[in-house]
Computed example of a mutant assay.
Amino acid sequence: MARLPDGDRRLLLACRFGHAWLPLLRHAVSIQAARAGLSGVRWDDFVLAVHEAAVNAVGHGGGRGELRLWRNGTMLCCQISDDGPGAEAGMPNGAHLPSLDGTEWRGLWLIRRLSDEIAITSGAEGTVLRVSFRLPG
């Protein structure tokens, strides 16, 4: 499982999860996002983006994942990693709306639209998706 980048020391939440834990994970993320200062639509967007990433980790990354949530200065960051086989070649980066006749990659598109910053790495050891949101003030 992936570690926090060097210098990020304000860890708010860290856990491993599977499908059965997704509702509890969403609740825990929502509490920490509010404590960090997100509210209203920004709070909703953060919780939804993280939830979509966690659902993708479970659905496409081997059935489980790991979440790390931290505050880095003026940003609230969340990293979701999995030990799955990695994304297939040609995976869209979420920059364009997927076709309306399918459901593949809609979560990634939504995460990209909601987040201030997003980074994705994927390979044989799994996938790591990091979302960051600017905090108010």
Results as ranks from 00 to 15, higher is better:
61 G>Q: 05
50 V>Y: 00
137 G>N: 10
37 G>Q: 04
51 H>E: 15
23 P>Y: 01
19 H>I: 00
65 G>E: 10
105 W>H: 14
73 G>Y: 04
124 A>C: 01
16 R>Q: 13
27 H>R: 14
2 A>M: 11
57 A>D: 08
84 G>R: 06
99 S>G: 14
121 T>G: 15
78 C>K: 01
22 L>Q: 04
13 L>M: 07
117 E>N: 11
24 L>M: 05
44 D>S: 07
11 L>K: 04
65 G>I: 12
72 N>V: 02
45 D>M: 08
103 T>W: 11
89 A>K: 07
34 A>W: 11
135 L>E: 12
54 A>M: 03
89 A>I: 03
11 L>D: 02
57 A>C: 11
49 A>W: 08
84 G>I: 13
14 A>R: 14
12 L>C: 03
86 G>V: 02
128 V>F: 00
93 N>C: 09
25 L>D: 07
115 S>I: 12
14 A>C: 03
27 H>W: 08
36 A>N: 07
94 G>Q: 07
136 P>M: 08
97 L>H: 09
137 G>A: 13
66 E>M: 10
30 S>G: 15
96 H>E: 15
13 L>T: 06
128 V>L: 13
10 R>I: 00
34 A>C: 04
137 G>W: 01
90 G>M: 04
39 S>I: 00
103 T>G: 12
112 R>W: 03
115 S>E: 11
97 L>K: 13
67 L>R: 08
34 A>Q: 13
16 R>E: 15
82 D>K: 03
9 R>T: 14
132 S>Q: 13
77 C>L: 04
121 T>E: 15
15 C>N: 00
38 L>R: 01
28 A>Q: 12
116 D>P: 03
56 N>W: 00
52 E>T: 05
24 L>Y: 04
1 M>Q: 06
93 N>Y: 02
74 T>D: 14
23 P>Q: 05
4 L>P: 10
110 L>H: 05
64 R>E: 15
123 G>F: 11
100 L>W: 10
29 V>Y: 03
2 A>W: 12
85 P>T: 04
40 G>P: 08
